[in-house]
C-alpha cells in the first residue's frame, strides 16, 4: 500500500491535520484564555525510528495523551506536550502556581485537568476530521502518561507494526504566544492513520 501514496494523497492528509488542529487550537485558546496558534502541518512517511526521534528523542520526558480511533477509519492519536509547557497550561487551568508534572506523585487534580484537556482537544480535532471527511469514527477515552517520548509514541506504532515498518504521521505543532518555540519545547498533535484506513479517507474526499 505504501507505494500507492502520492503527493496528492499527502496533501489531503495535510488538510486533515490543518482542519483538525485548527479546531483543537481554538479549543485550547478558549480553555486557557490565551492566544494559541498552530503551524502548518507536516505529513511524512517515516521509518519507526525517525518517529522516535521527534520531540527531542526517545528519552525526552513528555506529557502524552493517547487514544485509539475505530470506525470507518482507524488509527492512533497523540497530544504530546513538553513538561514545561504542560506545567504552564495546567497551572493556568487549575490556578495553582505550585503544580508540577515532575512531582512524585503528580497531584491528582493536575492529572484530571490534563486528562480533561486531552478529552476536549482530541474531541475538537476528531470531530473536525469527521465533519470534513463524512467518516464515522469512534475514539476511545484518552489515556495519560508522563514518561519518555519513545515509550509513549511506540504504543501507537505497535498496531501499525503488524503490517508495516513505516508510519504516515500527520504532525501539527502548536505555538504559544510569548514563549521560545523550538522542536523540543513545542506541543504536538500526531495522527497516525492505519494503512487499511487510507482507502476510506481518500475515497471520502474524492481522491482515489
Amino acid at each position: 500500500m505504501d507505494a500507492d501514496i502520492t503527493s496528492l494523497h499527502l496533501d489531503v492528509l495535510k488538510e486533515i491535520g490543518n482542519i483538525g488542529a485548527a479546531h483543537a487550537a481554538t479549543s485550547l485558546s478558549l480553555l486557557l484564555n490565551k492566544k494559541i496558534d498552530m503551524i502548518v502541518p507536516k505529513v511524512e512517511m517515516v521509518p519507526f525510528n525517525d518517529m522516535m526521534e521527534l520531540v527531542g528523542g526517545p528519552e525526552n520526558v513528555v506529557v502524552g495523551i493517547y487514544l485509539r480511533i475505530e470506525g470507518d477509519a482507524s488509527g492512533s492519536m497523540f497530544f504530546i506536550l513538553p513538561v514545561e509547557q504542560a506545567n504552564r497550561f495546567i497551572k493556568r487551568l487549575i490556578q495553582d502556581e505550585t503544580f508540577d508534572f515532575n512531582a512524585i506523585p503528580v497531584p491528582e487534580i493536575g492529572l484530571s485537568a490534563m486528562q480533561e484537556m486531552g478529552n476536549i482537544l482530541s474531541g475538537s480535532y476528531l470531530s473536525a476530521f469527521s465533519d470534513f471527511t463524512g467518516l464515522k469514527i469512534y475514539p476511545t477515552v484518552p489515556g495519560l502518561s508522563v514518561d519518555m517520548f519513545g515509550a509513549i509514541i511506540s504504543t501507537g506504532l505497535i498496531e501499525l507494526s503488524h503490517v508495516s515498518d513505516h508510519v504516515i504521521v500527520i504532525n501539527t505543532s502548536i505555538l504559544e504566544e510569548g514563549y521560545e518555540q523550538n522542536e523540543t519545547v513545542k506541543g504536538h498533535f500526531f495522527l497516525l492513520p492505519e494503512p487499511a484506513s487510507f482507502h476510506a479517507i481518500f475515497n471520502a474526499l474524492g481522491v482515489s
Partner: peptide, 16 residues
C-alpha cells in the same frame, strides 16, 4: 552485537 569495551543501549522502551 557488541564486544567489550563497547556497551549497547536502547532508549524509550514502553511495551517493547
Amino acid at each position: 552485537v557488541v564486544t567489550t569495551p563497547n556497551t549497547i543501549r536502547t532508549s524509550g522502551l514502553g511495551s517493547c
